[in-house]
């Protein structure tokens, strides 16, 4: 493999990897506050892309993206308020099935609203054939947008959780719900907020990736399962781990294309998921002792 080809694959891997990392962090935020895995996580990414494409004819690109992210956040809040907020101590099986149902309904609504055409936003800078030379490889400036936006999102989120009072309240709920209630925090609002946050992050990722990867009504399931793979790989609830694991999975996938047929690309990442679940369910970076306290 030549250096150019290697760099080319590497950047493809990093692009997809940052998207997976964002989806995985979305999983983590909701998991940390509620203990449930939101199977509809990938649908937020799809919604972000779809809504921004629809808004684009009426307004400039940054505004369309901003509005799409806001709308998806409202959808996330509505989903939590309508389907989850009022359930008292539901079983895990029940929550899994409800979020799967939400994901199906969102997807079906999307196919009836937007049809099954493939859509995409225009490139943020330049066009399809604009490239930048990096070590002999040619990469699109959109790749830098994806990586940059995802990086900024992760850093902002980290600062939000560490420095703001709302962020600290959310972490308090994740650490100990009862103690948080005793401190005067309303955990229900924190759960709603976690849905809003992860919906917004997913939507923004969906917008920046749209020019390269395209948006279709059914991309959610694939993203959800890969995002989950990454979340597990990095240790569930651990966002730093999710970034590392996301990049790892993206790069493995990109290089796997040079070895096996493209059609098996998805099968490879799922095989990794199964392998990780069987061998190290607490993830590559998680601690095995802490994992024993969780219910696998």
């Amino acid at each position: 493999m030549t250096t150019e080809l290697f760099v080319q694959y590497l950047f493809a891997g990093i692009t997809y990897g940052s998207i997976y990392a964002i989806v995985a962090i979305g999983f983590n935020i909701i998991y940390n506050t509620t203990g449930i895995i939101n199977f509809a996580q990938g649908e937020f990414v799809m919604l972000g892309g779809m809504i921004s494409v629809s808004l684009l004819p009426y307004m400039p690109l940054p505004l369309a993206i901003g509005l799409a992210v806001l709308i998806t956040m409202v959808v996330g809040a509505l989903i939590e308020i309508v389907f989850i907020r009022w359930l008292t101590s539901p079983s895990v099986l029940r929550m899994i099935i409800i979020t799967i149902g939400i994901s199906i309904l969102t997807r079906e609504a999307a196919v009836h609203i937007w049809g099954d055409n493939i859509r995409s936003l225009p490139y943020f800078a330049g066009n399809e054939i604009t490239t930048i030379g990096v070590l002999g490889a040619r990469i699109s400036p959109q790749v830098l947008w994806v990586v940059g936006v995802c990086g900024v999102m992760v850093c902002t989120l980290h600062l939000f959780f560490k420095t703001t009072s709302v962020g600290r309240e959310m972490r308090a709920c994740a650490a100990n719900r009862t103690a948080a209630i005793l401190c005067g925090i309303n955990p229900r609002n924190m759960v709603t907020l976690s849905f809003v946050l992860s919906a917004g992050m997913g939507a923004l990722a969906g917008c920046v990736m749209s020019p390269i990867t395209y948006t279709q009504y059914d991309i959610g399931t694939g993203l959800a399962i890969k995002g989950f793979t990454v979340a597990i790989l990095g240790g569930l609830g651990n966002s730093g781990g999710a970034v590392a694991a996301g990049l790892l999975l993206g790069i493995i996938e990109a290089f796997s294309v040079s070895v096996v047929p493209l059609a098996f690309k998805d099968a490879i990442s799922i095989a990794i998921l199964l392998l990780i679940l069987f061998v190290r369910p607490h993830g590559l970076f998680g601690s095995g002792e802490a994992a024993r306290l969780k219910a696998f």
Binding site: I37, V92, I225, I232, A263, F264, L274, L277, F278, F296
Partner: peptide, 26 residues
Amino acid sequence: VLKLKGHYLAMATLGFGIIIYRLVLA
């Protein structure tokens, strides 16, 4: 797979289903 519980079991069986789907499709 059956050593897993809850979300993990659901995702693992979902993954198995997708692999079979991809295999017959390819």
